[in-house]
Amino acid sequence: MSGFIAFAIINVVVVMALAPLYISLVKKMKAFLQGRKGPGLLQAYYSLWKLFKKEVVYSSNSSFIMRVAPYISIISALVAALFVPLLFIPDDYSGFGNIILLLYILAVGKFFMALGGLDAGSAFGGMGSSREMSISSMVEPVVIVLFAAIAFVFRSTNLFEILREASHGLGGYASLWLLLIPLVIVLLTETARIPIDNPETHLELTMVHEAMILEQSGRNLALLEIASAIKQLLLMGIIINLFMPMGFNLQVLFPAGILIAFGAFAIKGAFLAASIGVIESSVAKLRLFRLPNLFALSFFLSVVTIMMEVLL
């Protein structure tokens, strides 16, 4: 069990350290592609620090939900961080890593974030929560089928076992490549990015996630921002360790193996974050009624993957 405790501490520290960096990196990449200088790579850390020092303001209509939602969101994100190995896989992980449980833990955070948006009683928060839940209701079936397809490919529902198998290389897992597109679509959806949502807009017509947290302020807003950044990093971690497992779970003694794995993950994460920036810059935000098309595509590819696994 001590091995798992070491894993938990290292994983959480890595998540907390890298999550804001990749948010900045996506913004930097977008700015670069638009010919702007853009914010520095440490800007996300400065912004979070600034928010932590600011006073929290609550609407007079709000209840305890508004007060607890940020904490539940950050706790659920941190618990989820124990389910997604980023650098290595511990020897003993009993009770952790179930892929279905991971989805539910992430859903709990989102649920309370949406409740927080409704709780303030403002038109914007309610509208944001409503839109976020509408999109969630469309994407959840896709996410379930997608993770079922991953479980089908590796014959396991435990993410630790799946990633351990993937770390040996993807030879013989041709059908897994079909899932790369659905995984990227789910990553963009769950992290409220273009073409599903625009994280930088504050226009009434286009806001989804931002409208939901518009009533949050100070420390609470910082916690919600960190929770979103962690969620993005965890989904990125699944993609990275499934499709680019080089440097992951090295059988080298501590701490050299951990440091190499950290370096490798940071580089691969930077590459994926830059790719997200490229995607965000090269496509337009989709209208709400065009989103089912994107999700249907993911659903189609996930089901065909399952069929390939049945047949081949």
Binding site: N293, A296, F300, V303, V304, M307
Partner: peptide
């Protein structure tokens, strides 16, 4: 529409 076409395609494959 494209969305229903994708679902119909899936149905066809099955």
């Amino acid at each position: 529409h494209p969305t229903s076409s994708i679902f119909l395609s899936l149905f066809i494959v099955i």
